Simulated assay, not measured.
Amino acid sequence: MREIQYEEFEEKIIEIRRTSKVTKGGKNLSFRVVAIVGNKNGKVGLGIGKAREVPEAIRKAIADAKKNVIEVPIINGTIPHEVIGRQDASKVLLRPAAPGTGIIAGGTVRAVVELAGIQNILTKALGSTNPLNLAMATINGLKELLDPRKVAKLRDITVEEVYKGVRREGNA
């Protein structure tokens, strides 16, 4: 098993939900916490923790988030291209934005995008606005992003040609 090096991650709690299970002896209360961790430099992770007490659930959620960190390609403070992230009934449209635009997003999507280190982005939540599904849809959208440098290398063209869509003679 490989050892994971943790950088200094910032943590944000998105949701704390009280759940109860009815048993013969009464109701058993527990808590579900959804947490986001990120280094504001292209790495972000989502975690869920469940426990009888809130602090324990928070600890579990943050530990889970650190295990599920993904790499996000960021070019000039924004994402390289438009993408739609999906999770169950939630959809999140993520669009690159010009410098100075800022983060145009609701609470859940904003938390994920901020901790990923994106400074300029346009987002829109479509469908269900359940905080857990929105966070997962945002993470799924960020996972789908392709780094232009990797695309250029795969296609054996320059990064400028990836952006401009230039075709070479003989490849048409």
Rank of each mutant, 00 (worst) to 15 (best):
R149F: 10
G127N: 09
E144V: 00
P148E: 10
N130K: 10
T129E: 10
L126N: 08
G141D: 06
G141N: 12
T123E: 04
K150C: 01
N130Y: 07
S128L: 08
K153I: 00
G141S: 11
K143G: 07
A125I: 12
N133Y: 02
L126F: 13
V151P: 01
D147Y: 00
G141L: 07
L122F: 14
K153Y: 11
P148H: 10
M136C: 01
G127E: 02
L134K: 03
R149E: 15
S128H: 04
L146M: 15
K124T: 03
G141F: 06
K124Y: 03
I121M: 06
K150I: 13
L146V: 14
L142M: 09
I121T: 04
A137P: 05
L142T: 11
P148Y: 13
A125V: 15
N140K: 13
K153C: 02
L142C: 10
A152H: 11
N130V: 05
A135D: 05
L132G: 03
I139L: 11
L134T: 05
L142D: 08
R149H: 14
L146W: 01
A135W: 00
A137S: 06
G127D: 05
A137F: 01
K143T: 02
P131E: 10
A137L: 04
S128C: 10
L142Y: 02
E144W: 01
K150F: 02
G127V: 04
V151D: 01
P148F: 13
A135N: 08
I139Q: 03
K150P: 00
S128V: 01
L146S: 14
R149G: 03
I139S: 02
L146D: 05
E144R: 15
L126P: 00
E144S: 15
A152F: 12
L132T: 15
R149P: 05
N140R: 11
N140F: 10
L145P: 06
L146N: 10
A125L: 03
K153T: 13
E144I: 01
G127I: 04
N130E: 14
K143W: 07
N130D: 14
M136S: 08
L134I: 15
L145A: 04
K150S: 12
L122T: 07
T138C: 12
S128I: 04
A137C: 07
L145H: 05
A152P: 12
V151T: 14
L126W: 05
A152R: 09
D147M: 06
L122Q: 10
A135G: 13
T123S: 15
V151K: 12
G127H: 06
S128F: 00
V151E: 12
T123W: 01
N133F: 00
T138R: 07
L142E: 04
N130A: 03
I139R: 03
